[in-house]
Nucleic acid binder design. Structure first.
Lengths: 246, 246
DNA sequence: CGTTTGCTTGACAGCATTCAACGTTGGTGG
DNA sequence: CCACCAACGTTGAATGCTGTCAAGCAAACG
């Protein structure tokens, strides 16, 4: 698990069929920060791309931290824990997004990362990433931007949790998902939710019943069409108006 | 403001009377990550230590990002903004803590940093910090840990906001302040609040009246003694029990 | 000393939670 | 293939916590 299997390894798994230099996510991920001719350097750092089954943990709170992970395919939730043991979804991660940044400080993961569908991640050992970052200035800056973005995203969630009604929280949540999905080339009006109502509620500081009620309400208003986990945004402008007006 | 005034400048201000290599915060700040004999390298990076008056902004949302800031003396609040213009306190920063990390991604500050008392900060230009980080591996890691800690801290706030009652939020807030103050050698049972009830409420997702009521309630229970902004923690264990029990 | 700002307390209203019942979906095994 | 079960989702009614509005008081500032 810890061994740096060279790419010439004879072990043929899906994990070896991709490389950063040819990854379809390279515009969203670390490759954007490296010149074309140096991309293969990343391939020597990212040699391990495990598959995680739906419901399984990529890591759990307390696990030793060694690497950060980039979602290649699939969908994850990040669960934080209160001192009383209560857990809460701290974020959802999709292709190109990074998991495990919270483990750097203490060398121990501070939360669980659970796959919400069968997924694949790229393992990026922090030591080697840092080594590469020392050599390639744009990569160094890119990594810092990734962490900065995580901080800003958390601030957005704090705003949600601190001062928005249930309607607004759900609206903002959907718009955020929509925007990230669009960035990845998905439909701009249809969302297939990967998580339960309980997960959404946990993330938004609401109970699952409240989430369900808001969905129903927005559907009654003709803003959404809700079919189980399939959400069609009928009037995105109305959703945005919900969030942007006080 | 942007010029890198060399230390030989004849301008004598309080800003020039300190150096990282002799700073009393060196155990809390970047110096911990540098060998004694290389500490003066930091002094060439951190040459500017402006004073910020109470109520003034160190930076505001939208300002161009150039540097991060370490609080040398004083106390700051970090205000984030919702799309509807509503603002919310996203954190409080005291000596040795870092401001401005959220500006790295977009080269623009994403929130306001307001001094809650007359303060002094050390200006750490990001470019030069990164340059030094490429040279000194422990410094590089230390910077990453600082950002990681910020992410974990935000997760803690999300837990507060998402699933705790007003009592618990206030208790957790006081304990967190207490812990950080202790780390800096202050009393372990007395807190002088630098912020208004409204600031606290904004941070905790409560109205100022609710904060006030919780203070009164905890005082009635003999857990706190509240005299204006002076809080004495009479029974810290009871406070902790409040947070740690479901 | 007066004005502004911050803090406390009370009464009431409102939104989200809680508790409960029922409906739906998807996976499993007969 | 169908039946069953467990997990997930929806909806209703009642409770309760926090917000809102208002008044009065204390402290800080000039």
């Amino acid at each position: 698990m810890n061994a740096c299997t060279p790419p010439t390894s004879v072990v043929i798994t899906p994990a070896l069929k991709v490389a950063c230099s040819h990854c379809n996510l390279r515009d969203l991920c670390f490759p954007v920060a490296l010149p074309e001719e140096s991309l293969q350097r990343l391939d020597t750092v990212v040699t391990h791309r495990p598959l995680i089954k739906r419901g399984d943990a990529l890591f759990r709170k307390g696990d030793l931290f060694r690497a950060i992970y980039v979602v290649r395919t699939g969908f994850f939730k990040n669960c934080a824990f209160a001192p009383d043991g209560h857990s809460q979804v701290a974020g959802f991660m999709m292709a190109g997004e990074v998991l495990g940044l919270d483990g750097i400080e203490t060398d121990t993961h501070g939360c669980d990362a659970i796959a919400l569908e069968d997924s694949q991640v790229c393992v990026v050992p922090l030591n080697q990433l840092e080594e590469l970052a020392r050599e390639f200035i744009p990569l160094q800056r890119h990594f810092h931007k990734i962490m900065s973005r995580e901080i800003m995203r958390d601030h957005d969630v704090m705003l949600l949790l601190g001062s928005m009604t249930a309607d607004k929280r759900v609206a903002a949540f959907l718009l955020n998902l929509l925007q990230r999905l669009q960035l990845r080339g998905f439909s701009s009006s249809e969302i297939l939710l990967r998580m339960t109502r309980e997960d959404i509620g946990s993330y938004l500081g609401l109970k699952l019943e409240t989430v369900s009620r808001v969905f129903s309400k927005l559907q009654d208003q003709g803003i959404l069409e809700v079919r189980h986990r399939n959400i069609r945004i009928a009037r995105a402008a109305a959703l945005a108006a919900l969030v942007n007006t006080s």
